[in-house]
Structures are given as C-alpha cells and as structure tokens.
Design a protein around this nucleic acid. Structure first.
Lengths: 322, 322
DNA sequence: GTAATCTATGAAACGCGTTTCAGGTCAAGA
DNA sequence: TCTTGACCTGAAACGCGTTTCATAGATTAC
C-alpha cells in the first residue's frame, strides 16, 4: 500500500504538502494540490487510520461496556450511542462483560492504552474507586443513577420512578407488592430497593425477602417467576417488574396457570418497549435511547464539562395490566 | 505518559530490551528484566495500543456491520461474534447502518484504512461487486446464504428451511399461505421467496402479491399486519413469519381481533427466540449465535482458508401456533 | 520605499512500539 | 584448542501521518 511519502515523491512535493492536501489545509497552490490529488488517485492511496491515530493522539473510538447485548434495554442504549456517535464521527468499540469485573477492567485498559478516547459504562460491576484510578486517561460516563460526583452520569431518577410505580399500584388498591430486579447490586437496582423499602414502611407493610426476585432480566426469567410465586405462602397481588420483558414473561406464566391479569395479579414494568405496547402492559417509560445519546454528548464535551448528573424524565403509562 | 524510551533510560537498557520484556521474549537476563519491570512500575507505564497497532500492522479490531442492533436476530449474532472474538483477543467495532449503503462503505473504508483487521457483514445492502473492490484490504465474511464464491459466508440454507416450513404448513392442511420478509432485497429473503414460489407452483397455488409482506422485522410490524390482513379480499390461512417477533405481533393482533390461533390463522416463524418458547410459537430454530461464532472463526482463519460457504443446520420446532 | 503580512513549501522532529541486524559473551562439543 | 550454537543486547530502521519551524517570495500598508 502506498504511503504518504510515495505520494510526495510522485507528485514532486514534500510530505507536509501531501498532508496539507489530505487535510484540506489552506496555503497549498492549486497546481500542487492537483498534482497530489493525481498521485493519490493513480496509486489508489488510502490514509492509514492507525498512523493518524498515533500521530494525533486520539482515535475517534469510544468504548461501550455493557453486560449483554441482547437485552433490549442495553441494545437500545447502544442505538442511542451509535446515533449520537455518528454525529460526532465516533466509532464504537463494544466490550461485552456479562458483569465480569475483569472484562470491565479490560475496557478501562483500552482507555489507558489510548485505543479509545472515552468510555461509557451502560452498567457496571466494578467499583467507582477502581474506575477513579483511571482518571486522566480519558472521560468516563456512567449510565446510572448515582450519587457520586466523580463522573458524569445519565439516568432517570430511579428512586422517584419506582416510587411513582408503587404509588400507582397502591392507588389501585394494592399493598402486597412484589418486585423484580435485574441485578440487586446494581446502582439502579439499589435505588429501586431504597424506594421500595421507604414506601412499604410508609404503608406499614413488611419487607418480605421472598417477594424480591433478583436476576430477572429476560422474558424467560419472567416466565420462571410464576413457579416461585406458586410456592409462596403469602402471595403478592402486584408485581413491579424490572422491565417489559420480565413483565411479559410473568404475564404469560400467570395466564398459563389460569390467573388473570390484572385481577389476580397486577403487573407494572419499566422501559415501555414495543412489546409492552403490543401486550398492553402498563409500564413506566424510560427514554433509553436518549440516555445513550446524552452519554455521548457528555463524553464529547469531555473535560470542559463539569461532572454533571443528568436526570431524564420518566413517565407512567397506564394500560391494561394494573 | 511515560513511553518506552523513558523506561529504557530509567532502567539503563535499550528500547529493544524493554520491548522484549513487554512481549515476554526470551533472551533477556533476569536482572535486566527486573530493572525494566521496576522502571515500568515506578512510572506507571502503559503501552500505547495505537503505536503497537501501527507497528504491527494489525489492530485486533474487527468491524461488524449490522442494520440495527435492537433486532434480536442481529444482537444474537453480535453475541456470538463477541464471544468468539474474545477467544481470539479481538475487539469489536460496531457499524450500525440502517441498511444505508454509505454507512456500509464507511465500514469498508475502515478496513481499507487498516483500522480493522477484518469485516463481518451480518447483513448488507451494498452489492458484492463493490465489496470485491476492497479485496486485499482484509478478510470479509458474509452472514448470508449466498451463491457467490468470492467471500466466505455463513448461514442456514434459507431456501430449504423455508421449504421445510411450507411443507409443514401444507402437511397441516394449509395451502393458502402468506409470508413476511425483513427486506425483500436481502440475500436471505430472496432465497425464501424462491422457495415460496417453487412450492406454490408445486401445489398449484397462485402467487398473490398482497400475501407478501415486506419490511416486517419487529413485533410492532407484526402487529400491523393484521390490519392489512383484514382488508384482504382473499385471506390466507397461515403465515410464515420473518422471525418470532413478527409472529408474536401477528398473534397479538389476531387475538385482539377475535381470531384464534392456529384455527383461524396458523403462524410459523423463524429463529426460536425465547419469546417463541414462552408464547408457544411454532418456529424454525436457527443457530444464530453460532453464525456469529463461525463468522469470527472464518475471519481468523482468514487468507489461509478457502472461500468456503458454511451451512448450519436449522430445525423445525412444533409448538402451538400451527 | 520600507515594514509588516500573508501565502507557500519543505526539512525534520514527533508520536511510540517492534523488529532486524550486527556484535559480543559463554559454555558445550569435537 | 577451535567450532558451534545458544544466549544477550543495543543501534537503527521501520510503520505512517501530523505538526512545528524556518525560509522565502508576494502583497499590502503606511
């Protein structure tokens, strides 16, 4: 493959001039510009992106860590990130982690190794203290509802949203409310749990451990819940589900067992994915794609920006499952 | 950030020796190795990945072009690609295209610009002739059922699979069969159409244009179909759907209109995603993740391998919608 | 008419590892 | 004792653009 020096020789100019042409710098006489252009055409020249990256010190690559790509919540965020990234001429490097800390560290090493200009955590298992150690290697943005001020974060206010959901269920006559979480230790899940405990206390309901279903992320997970539900001595009358997929699974399971929704059990979920609309599932809309977009924007503003916490709006959507 | 020369100076060795230590080359005396190690520790040295890439001429980055990430079929392929990529120490660069040719060309330019070592098309809109022009810039693998021999391809035999589906529907008494496609012009869709036309001819059924539903990829798309169905003068008794999402939407729409599945209309789909299991949708299983894995394997074997076409098995799964 | 700008251009340094090549040491084998 | 080969090391070249600095002719300004 031809390189810039060959072009220079063929065009009878210096490499600096070739570089100027390549980058549309001014101060190149038209005839030289033309000669360079021709040389590039005749040698079918293509700049080596890696060389540019080394030279410039940036790569226009941003890392995205996510646990699993085939959970709609995450693929939605990625869509937002991809769309906004396109606006800023950024390519995405995907790091799928399955919540394994070592993989998240790998992603951080990409940052430290200057392969990526910034890193977005759509979710994380690694502690903030660890991430802090990578400060100075490039901007890091978190897609979570966190209280720390070290890193910019984008999220809906999960505590309020969960409260809103619970209040709604209560307003519909429910007080025996179970809930499901994607991953108990996740930042967002913790907010949800906080909200749950506060509200239960307010209405004088005990916290029942077996009404908290952890590791529920997929439609299959939702489907399984009903088995556990059946074995429960005390049964809840409503479920606040991690997301629409879990809600859908739960509803199918319930129907399969002859339970009617919302009479035997009510189901409210999060996300407002297409499946919730099609299935008429009451849900709390989260602007997921927008989270991704904002994450990129924040990353791009980078150092200049203060470590802000961006809170996006959520919205309860009443349909037929509560 | 410290670089290799600083390390060399501090450790009192040459850069070559530092590089040897970095890469675990033999022939470095233990004490020097140690000195280098110490120098690296004390300066908190991290190698610059971009420099390595430029130097080695490879990046361990592979590009993945896909139309949209939040279609389960594609996110599944990505999962397979990511998993297998991990085995080979490959990072993924995602290029979301929405089937825009210009974006696909961008991905090819990444290949030509040496930013990525290879490129996987999970789907494509650009013609093979165009892709051919990029030959020599790195391996390209197609995830489609194609007849060309220029590029390795991984897929199930869509024509046979579709035939199998049709035969099954016919065996259940259907002859008036409609079908949906993701994108009529796609390679896989064309195979499906070929199969459809052949079988319809065999059973002496006319090809009705309004029984072919294009651009059906999501659950929402499936839900819409029923509106068109209602307006049909002649109605099919069975649908062969693009994928489980479309089938699910179709079924919800049907139920909503008081139609019973499979008695009023039967539905058979492709993919065998979790939703099909939960909803008891009869489907044709496709080893989607395996397609992704094999794509990476093929890419890694790269030049050495012949331009093989890999055909993976499919399997009809009888459930309750036919 | 002379100083101050602007326009053009190239040499060389730079970013940072990797790799080749040549040279040297030392111990085992002939 | 001489060869041979394994072991060890560094200088320098390499991969390839970008950018700085210096130079110089061409204008414009006062």
């Amino acid at each position: 493959m031809a390189n810039i020096r060959e072009i220079a020789k063929l065009a009878g100019v210096s490499v600096a001039t070739v570089s100027r042409v390549l980058n549309n710098h001014p101060y190149v006489r038209e005839e030289k510009r033309h000669a360079v252009q021709q040389a590039m055409d005749s040698l079918d020249y293509r700049r080596n992106l890696t060389a540019i990256h080394l030279s410039k010190g940036t790569t226009n690559l941003i890392g995205v860590v996510l646990p699993s790509i085939d959970i709609p919540y995450f693929s939605n965020i990625i869509e937002g990130i991809a769309e906004e990234g396109l606006q800023h001429n950024l390519q995405l490097v995907l790091v799928q982690t399955n919540y394994e800390i070592s993989k998240e560290l790998d992603a951080l090493e990409l940052l430290r190794g200057n392969l990526i200009d910034g890193l977005i955590f759509t979710s994380r298992a690694v502690s903030l203290d660890i991430i802090k150690q990578y400060n100075g290697n490039g901007p890091v943005v978190l897609c979570e509802d966190s209280d720390q001020l070290e890193f910019p974060s984008i999220s809906i206010p999960h505590e309020q949203a969960f409260q809103r959901g619970l209040d709604y269920l209560i307003s519909k006559g429910h007080s025996r409310i179970a809930y499901t979480l994607g991953r108990k230790t996740g930042a967002n899940s913790q907010k949800r749990t906080t909200a749950y405990q506060a509200i239960m206390k307010k209405i004088n309901e005990p916290i029942r451990d077996d009404w908290v279903f952890d590791k529920c992320l997929t439609i299959t997970d939702g489907r399984q819940i009903i088995h556990k539900y059946n074995r429960l001595k005390e049964k809840p009358t409503a479920f606040l589900a991690t997301n629409d997929q879990v809600a859908a699974g739960l509803i199918f399971g319930a129907q399969n067992d002859g339970l009617t929704v919302p009479y035997d059990i009510a189901v409210l979920s999060f996300d407002n994915q297409p499946i919730s609309e099609v299935m008429n599932i009451s849900t709390i809309d989260i602007p997921i794609k927008e989270i991704g977009r904002k994450a990129v924007q924040t990353l791009v503003e980078g150092k200049s920006a203060k470590k802000q916490k961006i809170s996006l709006p959520f919205q309860l959507i009443e349909r037929k499952t509560v």
